[in-house]
Design a protein around this nucleic acid. Structure first.
Lengths: 351, 351
DNA sequence: CTGAAAGCGCTTACAG
DNA sequence: CTGAAAGCGCTTACAG
């Protein structure tokens, strides 16, 4: 796009090789004004078939595509939605991004995705840059930006944020039922006769991790079991943290027959650690994850997990941001969580 | 960004709430012209510390961020690179996208990612839309767009394409060593004493699949073993195809002691199918994948796989497109493949 | 129905 | 060193 060529000579016509065509070139070719071509393209006017056809011919001849920057400047919109993702290469969030893209494309929008890398400073930088790029709206997919910041941003651009409950103008939040999901998992374990249920959390102060821990505790209490802090270990949302935390748990004096993990990746790590120690899943220890990654169905053994339909959440986020942009006040909630029982959980040994 | 407000009254000053600041507002506040502010922001001029400070103060006061569309229009560039990915939610390509983002951000560019969904028509639509949006360059991450199309696109915008060897102006291609990777895998199996080595391919006419099959065949021949078409089954790049293909292989009369899969996801499926049939990996059958997904290290057992550093490939693609844009002719190649030997492969039983 | 003109917010030769 | 002016390519009241 870098213009190394002089401006087109006024009298000249025909396509300039290597340069993209402009509205004026098309207009000259079709023998009308740029205004008319613009209106025909945007369908804001009715014209004779003949005229329409000759304009279309000119467009085709030049392979004309309206310049998005110019259009955006004139219209004050870019048809682009910024997305702040935790990680672009996460098997979990990836599905959500796909949902967002799908939901957006149907209405002529495209997502501009940036990775927050699980760091609050990065998330801020993303939002700033997205605003500078003039996106029409921003979807904050999870993350830990403060409510206050989010409300502030919502003053300059519509915002959808997932994993949080928050009320503000031009902002839609969709709370994921983390606590409920945890309760589903723990109840399932209780039903199988387990009484010593360990939990591996994610990064300690992450809202999702806090909610999931809360659900775990609550289900335990409902089941008449005291919460035992020695049965909780800290992971890092990834396999490696699952391995380390499981090893810690195993080394401590506290026994457990079931292990609930803050997400599937953590559970993968836990399974490997258990395997290394000669423990069999689910014979010796039952394991449950959270997220239900596509590959969890294909683990050995297939992993029992709490499913939150992240792809669907992505699509709803897309729908939400578009409604917000249209000036409406959407009433959209996150999809329900459900427990997918597979083969990594079984009856408590000796129960 | 939708301007529902009238244009600012000429005499007015101070921030307009809910509207983003413009260069002129900042200039007025600082008591200089817009030109000067622009030059200070872009560092194309040296000014006194005092002036600089007062301009910076004005910028801070308004929270000014230059409008990207306007800037793009004036400069003829958008600082955005289009990316055509096969799938935005693939655990494999995700890592590459992250590499691209990382490589781009360092130089002030951002990726606009679109999914080709493994379909050639979708890939075309993506490129078209990306060009219309005025991206400064496009990275085609794998995919099956024809060489001719690609060359054509390269006339209007610089292009980097991976998984292909292709020479054209303003185009950089990076061939992945698929065949070599396959040979590494098969040789490893041969070294372990295996003679009956099966192969599960991806979608039949995909270039990557073809190359990997070629490497498999070649290594076999070098090892003095005849190629046996009954030992080749067709998958779909995903776990499900791996399950199905393995079951087919098992049902056929041809015996095999090792199984090489076109990618890790296929291998995951294969392992599950083997497990279902009561076969142990690697005791009864050795399994090797291709891609070395992050989670392969955490499979049970950890999967032996051919590693192609897709993240690194992403970074190099970013570097390549930026050099192309700068008018240079980059000499960048894809990173080497290497075999990661883990626990899913072992000596041939009875050898 | 159609065109000339102004404007979107920035950058950058071109003059002082 | 700094400002006025033109221009990037489009859209859209405003006049015919």
């Amino acid at each position: 796009m870098k213009s190394k060529f002089p401006a087109p000579t006024p009298g000249r016509s025909g396509p300039r090789p290597g340069q993209s065509a402009t509205l004026r070139m098309v207009a000259r070719e079709a023998g009308v004004s740029a205004s008319t071509v613009s209106r025909i393209i945007n369908g804001t006017v009715k014209v004779s078939d003949g005229l329409k056809r000759s304009v279309e011919a000119a467009i085709a001849k030049f392979g004309f595509r309206p310049n998005a920057a110019a259009r955006g400047l004139a219209l004050g919109k870019t048809s682009t939605i910024g997305v702040v993702a935790q990680a672009i290469d996460s098997p979990f969030y990836g599905e959500g991004l796909r949902g967002i893209e799908t939901g957006l494309r149907q209405r002529g929008y495209a997502p501009l995705i940036m990775s927050g890398n699980w760091r609050i400073e990065d998330e801020e930088r993303c939002v700033q840059e997205l605003i500078a790029r003039g996106v029409d709206g921003i979807i904050v997919f999870a993350g830990r930006l403060s409510d206050a910041k989010l409300k502030g941003y919502a003053k300059s651009v519509p915002i959808v944020v997932t994993g949080r409950r928050l009320r503000a103008p031009r902002l839609l939040s969709m709370q994921i039922e983390d606590a409920k999901g945890s309760m589903l998992a723990v109840r399932h374990l209780l039903d199988l006769g387990h009484r010593q249920i360990a939990f591996i959390t994610g990064s300690e102060n992450h809202p999702d991790a806090i909610e999931r821990l809360r659900g775990y505790t609550q289900a335990l209490v409902e089941g008449g079991i005291d919460f035992n802090p020695n049965l909780v270990a800290v992971g890092d949302w990834h396999e490696e943290g699952g391995v380390r935390a499981t090893l810690e748990l195993l080394d401590s004096k506290s026994r457990f027959t079931a292990l609930f993990c803050v997400n599937d990746q953590t559970a993968y790590g836990a399974c490997l650690a258990l395997y290394r120690k000669g423990l069999s899943v689910p014979h010796d220890v039952s394991v449950i994850g959270f997220d239900d990654l596509p590959s969890s169905t294909y683990r050995l053994p297939p992993l029992t997990s709490v499913r939150q339909s992240i792809g669907e959440l992505g699509e709803r986020s897309a729908q939400g941001i578009l409604e917000l942009i249209a000036g409406r006040r959407p009433r959209i909630a996150a999809p329900d969580v459900e427990l997918m029982v597979r083969e990594s959980t079984g009856r408590c040994p000796g129960s």
